[in-house]
Design a binder for these strands. Sequence first.
DNA 1: ATAAAGTGACTTTTT
DNA 2: GTCACTTTAT
Length: 749
Amino acid sequence: MDVLHNLNQQQQQAVTAPEGQILVLAGPGSGKTRVLTRRIAYLVQYMGVSPFHIMAVTFTNKAAREMKSRVETMIGESIHGMWLGTFHANCARILRREAAHLPISNNYIIFDADDQVGIIKNIIKEEKLNDKQYRPYDVQAAISNAKNNLITAEEMIVETQRDRIVQRIYRKYQATLESNNAVDFDDLLFWAVRLFEEYPAVREAYSRQFRHVLVDEFQDTNLVQYTLLKHLSSFHNNLFVVGDEDQSIYRWRGADYRNVLRFTDDYPKATKILLEENYRSTQLILDAATSVIDENLHRTHKQLQAARNLQGPKIILHTAYDDRDEGIFVVDTIHRLLDRGKAAGSDFAVMYRTNAQSRLIEEAFLKAGIDYRLVGAQRFYGRREIKDLIAYLRLVHNPDDAVSFNRIINVPKRGIGEVSLQSILLAAQKAQVSPGRLLLSLGLEKEKSALADSLPSRILPKLIYFGEQFLYWSEAKEELSVAELLETIIESIEYENYLEEDSVNRDTSIDRLANVHELRRLTYEYKDSGLDTFLENMALVSDQDTLPENTEAPTLLTLHAAKGLEFPIVFIVGMDQDLLPHSRSISEPEELAEERRLFYVGITRAKDQLYLTRAERRSFFGTTSTTLPSEFLADIPSELIEIAGKAGITRHHQRNTDYAQFRDNARTTQAPSWLDFARPETRRQPEVDPIYHIGMRVHHAMWGEGVVINSFVDDGEEAVDIEFKETGLKKVLASIVKLEILGEGENHV
DNA sequence: ATAAAGTGACTTTTT
DNA sequence: GTCACTTTAT
């Protein structure tokens, strides 16, 4: 396939851009991924660049995988040798190769967020600090933040007592990682940058290799990532970045959309290309999205233009009595559209700000007997049984991993509690070995081990027994595949028995066994690679990559998880102040701006129809309170919105009078009072007065002009029969089919 | 050493 | 309301 096939002019310009720094600012749905993959194909096929000389960086494994398969399809050959992966995976690879320059050996393991917090918790305990005042999670965030800004413990700015303490914990934390032969997520990037800065020859070697560096989702890079890219491209200076400031939603993880501005500052000769043609949504949806995001400052305005030449139906806004009714409205609406064959299950997505909101939506789905797909909620790798078994494998791979040791020393129960554990750790410390190596020594030399004396006699036999098992696994790990090793471990510790006994009820037991089975299945995929590759992938692969792909059902997901996806019909629920924007973000302008971007991301996922819903009453942590409409609703011009689900006042009345007020208030900063008119006065009142009358002339986007033959309310729904000029008689539901009223009998509007 | 009862926190979570 | 973590009782 020709790499320029079906590309618009801006896309072509990007794909064929000359060498140098290229910044592609790509609006939602503008073919960003397409440009990136075509650019790679162009380089390989037309410019004769070997895949070996290309590095392409993404944030997720999913994105990397997709890019890889798309490029391969396009150029019809393997791109073997290309460094195509996530920031973290590419850096992990570099660190593994350059371990000689680093305080870790090349079988280092990667600690995840839980491991990090666990270590910090221990340090806080050791330091006898108050864990209310120094919450492990917060300290971890502070350390992570420092690393994301390329700051070591020594380089921290210390002004307060708290800073001093955090610095001390940071230092100790880093020492712990080293003694465990481990790095955390942030270190992967941080150390790669340090490596390049301290060893110019290493930097030169890599930057010579990568004649072209390409980056996806550039707006989500943080300082480490930005710096890394500079180093990687420092020899050939070919840096091609694609992003959209307006879709930067990971500020709280250090992402800084201003890197887009920094890029043009640092590279004044950079070529800037704007992609504004949108291949996804209707113009109406784009107009709404634009009016929302235009409220933000410090950005490049983009005039999103729909390629589909379709204005599209208005956004439907529904205010429910409470959050339960909100869920019911969503599911009812989906149900009706499914029943009428207007859409398939997979056409729908329901998006929310917080995971907690999914529960009531799920309940409504369950009640209606409609299948759904939940993205993200509990993570597979976060499950206890998975973490346990991974900890066993990690310990076998790297006996110095004390975090994993602590995790599994009494799982399954070996009668080694807190006190015994402390005495083991103390004995190991005295002998200057890691607890894992102490165990190996016990397994090898039994009671004769020099370490045996310093351990309580009560637990010694148990430790020796466990040590023998551990020694056996360690010796067998070279010959056995990952799957075989895992199987051996599961059997010798009787893990499945333990799960059954330990589970509170039958269901959790079945769940957990199923998870273990799933892990087994996963290990079979690593037939040809070693334990190291498996563990690295376990650490670096996210849950969303392993989601079962049930493509038939509506998808429930957070707004964050929605980035990069698209659906014909999108519901954004919880359009209430304090939820979206979230209460924690309201006081800080930059955070409020990010909430707005989050809303923008949600809106622009919709191809054809967008529903916004909110609830007048919502339960927060058990207690119900009333809510105010999201301030973002006021940013959408009223003429793009249609209010649905109102009861008590006729729709007709509302259209003629309330709409003006709606418009007048739409631009005020206060909660728009027009929403009062959309407010249901009584709970789930089914009766609705018909909007359409016999003889009324209407227009539909697809069917053209027609005349209303009949209209009646059935089960709280207005059903309308319309005779269309072109297509004949259609029976439709007023709330679903978008009709424009051209005239009532003789009167024109 | 472990199970039961009490306490308090609670956004998002690409790696 | 729910979950994880801590205290307390066995």
